[in-house]
């Protein structure tokens, strides 16, 4: 395959403004099939906004070109808590199928399969979405996103609230998905260790693109200091 054929996403001079406020300015990068791109940056750097622009949820300037007919799965940071909506986990999955209220064995089998691939037992299906722990909810959101086998997964990592052991296995899980399904992963990360360990490309963002490339080369100490400020060093060292 030539480079061009492997390319799955091409972003050129992407800018986003809300009113007079510029959130993202002239961002360019590209993603190839089976890449693991980590997007890092301080709070308010525009990472989630970048995701929303990539998925065409918000207006932007510049070019975002996905490969034709590419299927994208999206894992948001969290769901807004809507206690008034008594949605079960099963129903949450069925919102993706055409048969919300009738038995659809085929999709239920796929749901159980996807839950297994994120290490969750099928008996979670009868629980209410609102009663899940954050770790469980994150896994449910991941399996929701990969149901129907998208080629690309956009993963917006939660900033806090998931225990370290749980977090570790989420990354392993993503890595496994990538290996087994050749899935392309674009992930907003808050943990530089993850970037060094799993990502083959990194994009540092703080309104503008501050660095881009392979983590070992792009993420120098100088860059990290520029991105997060002086006291961010322990991130890198531990």
């Amino acid at each position: 395959m030539t480079d061009n054929q492997k390319n799955i996403l091409e972003v050129r001079d992407l800018s986003v403004s809300f009113g007079n406020q510029e959130i993202l300015k002239d961002i360019s990068f590209s993603v190839n099939e089976s890449d693991f791109l980590a997007i890092i940056g301080p709070n308010g750097a525009g990472k989630t906004v970048l995701f929303r622009a990539l998925m065409d949820f918000i207006p932007y300037d510049g070019n975002v070109k996905w490969r034709t007919n590419v299927k994208i799965g999206y894992v948001p940071q969290k769901l807004m808590e809507k206690a008034e909506l008594p949605l079960t986990v099963k129903e949450f999955f069925l919102l993706k199928s055409k048969n919300l209220f009738f038995k659809d064995k085929q999709i239920l089998n796929s749901v159980v399969h996807e839950l297994k691939s994120v290490d969750i037992d099928a008996n979670i299906l009868d629980r209410q979405l609102i009663n899940l722990s954050r770790g469980e909810l994150q896994r449910v959101l991941i399996s929701w996103a990969i149901l129907g086998h998208p080629q690309v997964l956009l993963f917006d990592e939660p900033t806090a609230g998931i225990d370290i052991a749980g977090e570790e296995s989420v990354y392993n899980m993503l890595h496994k998905l990538q290996d087994e399904r050749g899935m392309t992963i674009i992930m907003i990360s808050h943990d530089l260790n993850v970037v060094y360990r799993y990502a083959n490309n990194v994009l540092c963002l703080n309104k503008e693109r501050l660095c881009y490339g392979e983590p070992e080369r792009a993420l120098t100490n100088e860059q990290i200091k520029r991105l997060y400020g002086e006291n961010a060093f322990y991130h890198h060292l531990h």
Partner: peptide
């Protein structure tokens, strides 16, 4: 409608 109420961005994503 339900998905749009529960998670508008997920609704858009599909």
């Amino acid at each position: 409608l339900t998905l749009s109420i529960a998670a508008p961005d997920l609704a858009k994503s599909i």
